[in-house]
Each structure stands twice: as structure tokens, then as C-alpha cells.
Amino acid sequence: MNKNNVIICRCEDVTLQELHDVLEEGYTTFEDVKRILRIGMGPCQASTCGLLVQQEIAKFLGTSVKNIETHVTRPLTMGVKLGKIKEAADDES
């Protein structure tokens, strides 16, 4: 299998090879790989790749997927223009 052709995160175009390389380097939490690869940070916010990432980390660590913590979700879930956030704040005051 050519892992360079297996897409794990479609939004940020991250391959299985890139994920495995980062795991090999010792970054084995979802939060780590998210920060390094931007995996799960695109429009779908990991709703597609989240489980695949958990499975790959579990496989690498030789444990159950239940033991792999998922990523932290934070606002905002979609791109919002800064100007619009300012407008909303101005309306409030």
C-alpha cells in the first residue's frame, strides 16, 4: 500500500504516511498530531477523519481505540470574518 495515496483528513489533505511519520517521531496524542499536521482543523472539524486518526493512534500504540482521547473542540466551528465579530461586539455595547 502506498500510504502517500491514502487520505486521512480530506479538508487539510493529510495522508496516512504523514500521520505515521509524526507518530514515529513520538507525537502520539490527537492534540499533538492536530497541531503539527492541521489534521481535523478544516471545514468538517474532524467529523470525518476523527475516528480514523483515533484508530491509527490506537494501532500504533497497540491499544484499544477507546483509550485514545479525541481532540478538543473549540469555538468557532466555521470561519467567521473578524470584521463581523467586531460588528457584533459593537452592537452589544
Binding site: M1, N5, V6, I7, R10, S47, T48, C49, L51, L52
Partner: peptide, 12 residues
Amino acid sequence: ASEKFLAFENND
């Protein structure tokens, strides 16, 4: 809910 995806070659 959303649909699960599979990891295989050329899955994009």
C-alpha cells in the same frame, strides 16, 4: 450524526 470514512489508496 455524520458518515464514517475509510482509509484506502486513492480514497480522494
